[in-house]
Computed example of a mutant assay.
Amino acid sequence: MTRNRRDRDIEGRARNARPRDGLGRPLPYGEAGVERQPEGVVRAPAETLREAQRLLDAGMPFHAHEVFEDAWKSGPADEEALWRGMAQLAVGLTHAARGNSTGGARLLLRGAERISGYEAPYGIDVRALTSWARELAERIDAATVDAAAEAPRLLRPGHS
């Protein structure tokens, strides 16, 4: 069976149906991969943070990035920078775990800058996250990092 160059969903939009590993890298068709995050899910902020933390703790920052992407696309306009910054932190960790230290550092710093203007919305520990991102960006090099071991805590202590 031959495949189209681009997989399409039922509405005809391009969707890559290839299986992916835990860091979001495409695998060959037919291989077992990690279940993809559904797209376009509208979640309450607390649910977004719980799901993203679960994925980060499991060493799946690419998938956490997709959860944050849903939040920035479906949330209020005045929170777009917050959720987009959180997504950049997750994808920065993804790149670092894939061995792309330059891209990882760049995205970690960009995400930290984007969220730095917020106090602690929804219990997010903005100060700790920006410190974590800057520290990780400083010390990653050409070696890959362990995504689960480097996963940040998203919420301030005492928030769940």
Rank of each mutant, 00 (worst) to 15 (best):
T2A: 02
R8D: 13
I10S: 15
I10C: 03
I10D: 07
E11R: 15
R13T: 14
A14F: 12
N16Y: 08
A17I: 01
P19E: 02
P19T: 11
P26A: 14
P28A: 05
Y29P: 02
E31H: 12
G33W: 05
V34F: 03
V34T: 07
R36Q: 13
R36G: 00
R36K: 07
Q37N: 06
E39I: 15
G40N: 08
V41Q: 07
R43A: 07
E47G: 09
T48I: 11
A52H: 02
Q53V: 00
L56D: 06
A64T: 02
E66M: 10
F68I: 06
F68P: 13
A71F: 14
A71K: 13
A71I: 13
S74L: 15
S74I: 10
G75V: 06
A77W: 14
E79G: 03
E80L: 14
E80C: 08
E80P: 05
A81L: 04
A81G: 09
L82Q: 00
G85Q: 11
M86I: 12
M86A: 11
A87G: 15
R98I: 10
G99V: 10
G99K: 09
N100F: 06
G104Y: 02
G104I: 06
A105P: 02
L108Y: 09
L109F: 03
L109R: 12
E113G: 12
R114T: 09
I115D: 05
I115A: 01
P121E: 03
Y122V: 04
I124G: 01
V126H: 11
V126Q: 15
A128K: 12
L129I: 00
T130P: 06
S131L: 13
W132Q: 06
W132E: 06
A133L: 08
A133M: 07
E138W: 00
A142I: 09
A142C: 05
A142H: 13
T144Y: 03
T144L: 13
V145N: 00
V145R: 00
D146I: 00
A149Y: 08
E150N: 09
R153Q: 15
R153Y: 02
R153G: 13
L154C: 05
P157I: 15
